[in-house]
C-alpha cells in the first residue's frame, strides 16, 4: 500500500469487498466517536475507561479487518500504540500519586467535586478514565496486531 489517501482510493486487492469497505468508511468514525463518548461519560453513566477504550480499539481493528493491516498500522503504528500504552499507565499512576498532596494515595484531590449528572464533575475520575482508556485501547490494539502478525515478541499483557 503506497497510496497516500488509502481510505479514499481503496486498493481492490487488499482487504474485503467494496461493500464492506464502504460501510466501514461510513461507520468507523461513528464507532470512534461513540467510544470517546462512553469514556468521557464514564462517571455519569454506565461505561467508563475500560469499555470506552475497548470501543476505541475496536474502531481501529475494524479498519484492519476491512482494509488490511497496512492501512490500520499507518493510522496507528505499533510504536505509537506501545507509547500510548505506557503513557496511559504512567498517567494513571501519576494521578494516583498526586493524591499524596492531599495526604493520601488515590485521593480524589479536587476540592470541589462537582455535582451528580454534570459532565465536568467527579474530580479525578474522568481523568482516570481517560488514562485507562489510553492504556486499554492501545493495549488491546497491540495485542490484536501482535497475534495477527505472527511475528511477535512475547509481551507483558498487564491486567489493569
Amino acid at each position: 500500500m503506497n497510496n497516500k489517501k488509502e481510505a479514499a482510493v481503496p486498493d481492490p486487492n487488499k482487504g474485503m469487498t467494496i461493500i464492506v469497505k464502504t460501510i466501514t468508511r461510513l461507520t468507523v468514525g461513528l464507532i470512534l466517536l461513540y467510544g470517546i463518548y462512553i469514556l468521557s461519560h464514564g462517571h455519569v453513566s454506565p461505561g467508563g475507561g475500560f469499555a470506552g477504550g475497548v470501543i476505541v480499539a475496536l474502531s481501529f481493528i475494524h479498519i484492519m479487518l476491512a482494509f488490511g493491516k497496512d492501512v490500520a498500522l499507518k493510522k496507528l503504528s505499533m510504536r505509537a500504540a506501545s507509547f500510548f500504552e505506557s503513557l496511559g499507565a504512567l498517567l494513571f499512576l501519576l494521578i494516583a500519586v498526586i493524591g499524596f498532596t492531599g495526604g493520601s494515595f488515590f485521593l480524589n484531590f479536587f476540592a470541589d467535586k462537582g455535582e451528580p449528572f454534570k459532565l465536568f464533575s467527579a474530580g479525578i475520575i474522568p481523568l482516570c478514565n481517560i488514562a485507562i482508556s489510553l492504556k486499554v485501547g492501545a493495549g488491546l490494539f497491540s495485542i490484536f496486531v501482535i497475534l495477527v502478525m505472527l511475528k511477535f515478541t512475547v509481551d507483558g499483557k498487564k491486567g489493569n
Binding site: S82, F83, E85, S86, L87, A89, L90, L93, A96, V97, F100, F105
Partner: peptide, 19 residues
C-alpha cells in the same frame, strides 16, 4: 505514606522502562 511506595516504585519503573 511508605506503604503504597512498594507498589508505586516498581510500577513507575516498569512503565518508564517501556517508555
Amino acid at each position: 505514606n511508605i506503604i503504597p511506595i512498594f507498589v508505586i516504585i516498581p510500577l513507575a519503573g516498569a512503565f518508564l522502562t517501556s517508555l
